[in-house]
């Protein structure tokens, strides 16, 4: 019994230590975002002698945060909406109609999960389609990036929707579009929400693609704007912290609201393999 109790205390202790290690960096940033520049210089947990809320307004104005927030929103929303519609349609047909060629296409798409992007050569392709340094170009890129994993996740889920529904729908005179968008798509909702949340997070956090394909700062998403801001105000950790808080806020908010979906969906795909 004594060893069991020791075991249990150890479990509690270790998990608290880990949770603390997870939280400390985030709390550090939050606390220092309210300090003066002098006090934030050493980035510690000393309580601020005065609370400087104006750090946030300074950051929003000098970091052009509203503009980059708008850009991030645009890229994320466009790519997530476009991605979910295209991927759900594709995954549905691939999962339902397993012809030889469709099996091959599924593997071909899913291979993208491991396939790296050739960033430099992608420039040539982007130039050919006049997509370099454009908002639509980056949105389409983000969409393309989502396709392999989204198709993989949705494909696994489609089989839980009874096939009889398709046939019943057709017998009732539905066209394929009506059938899919009115009957099937709503039944995919759990995986749809998951895929959308995951892709939103990924798009919001994306850093390497804007780095390669956007030159004009007016098109930058928040990640790039923050990075640039850090380059200019490296010594002003109070401002950098405020900037970090503002950039992470949407992501953390989405996580808190959609945690159930994010976690359950990621696991639904992984357990099925």
């Amino acid at each position: 019994m004594a060893t069991k109790r020791l075991f249990s205390s150890l479990r509690h202790l270790s998990v608290w230590v880990v949770s603390l290690i997870m939280l400390v960096p985030l709390l550090l940033i939050l606390l220092n975002s309210f300090k003066t520049q002098g006090e934030a210089a050493s980035m510690n947990f000393k309580w601020p002698s005065q609370w400087v809320f104006s750090n946030y307004t300074v950051v929003i104005e000098s970091g052009k945060l509203l503009q980059s927030f708008g850009n991030s929103m645009l890229y994320s929303v466009v790519s997530v909406v476009l991605g979910i519609v295209l991927c759900a349609m594709a995954a549905y047909v691939l999962s339902r109609k397993k012809t030889r060629i469709n099996r091959f296409l599924y593997l071909f798409v899913v291979l993208g999960i491991t396939m790296p992007v050739n960033h430099i050569a992608l420039i040539k392709v982007m130039q050919t389609f006049n997509l370099m340094n454009t908002q639509i170009g980056l949105s389409l890129l983000y969409t393309a990036l989502q396709i392999p994993f989204s198709v993989f996740l949705i494909y696994g889920f489609v089989s839980t929707v009874p096939r009889e529904l398709d046939e019943a729908g057709v017998i009732d005179g539905c066209g394929s579009n009506t059938l899919f968008f009115r009957i099937i798509f709503p039944l995919l909702l759990p995986v749809v929400v998951t895929v959308m949340l995951l892709n939103f997070l990924a798009s919001w956090n994306e850093f390497i693609f804007p780095l390669y394909y956007l030159n004009s700062s007016s098109l930058w998403p928040m990640t790039l704007a923050v990075y640039n801001f850090f380059g200019r105000y490296e010594t002003a950790w109070n401002l950098v912290s405020a900037d970090i808080v503002l950039t992470s806020l949407p992501v953390i908010l989405i996580y808190l609201l959609g945690q159930k979906y994010i976690v359950s969906g990621m696991t639904a795909g992984s357990v099925k393999g």
């Binding site: 519609v85 295209l86 991927c87 349609m89 594709a90 549905y92 047909v93 691939l94 339902r96 109609k97 469709n102 296409l105 798409v109 993208g112 396939m115 790296p116 992007v117 050739n118 960033h119 430099i120 050569a121 992608l122 040539k124 392709v125 389609f129 389409l140 890129l141 969409t143 393309a144 990036l145 396709i147 392999p148 198709v151 398709d166 046939e167 729908g169 057709v170 394929s176 059938l179 899919f180």
Partner: peptide, 27 residues
């Protein structure tokens, strides 16, 4: 053929091929 039309695949495939696979081949 009617309930699972091939054109459902086009959008995803098009983007995937042109912006994901093609660059690697061009590369």
């Amino acid at each position: 053929k009617k309930i699972y039309p091939a054109y459902f695949l086009f959008g995803a495939l098009l983007l995937y091929v042109f912006l994901y696979v093609l660059p690697s081949l061009v590369g």
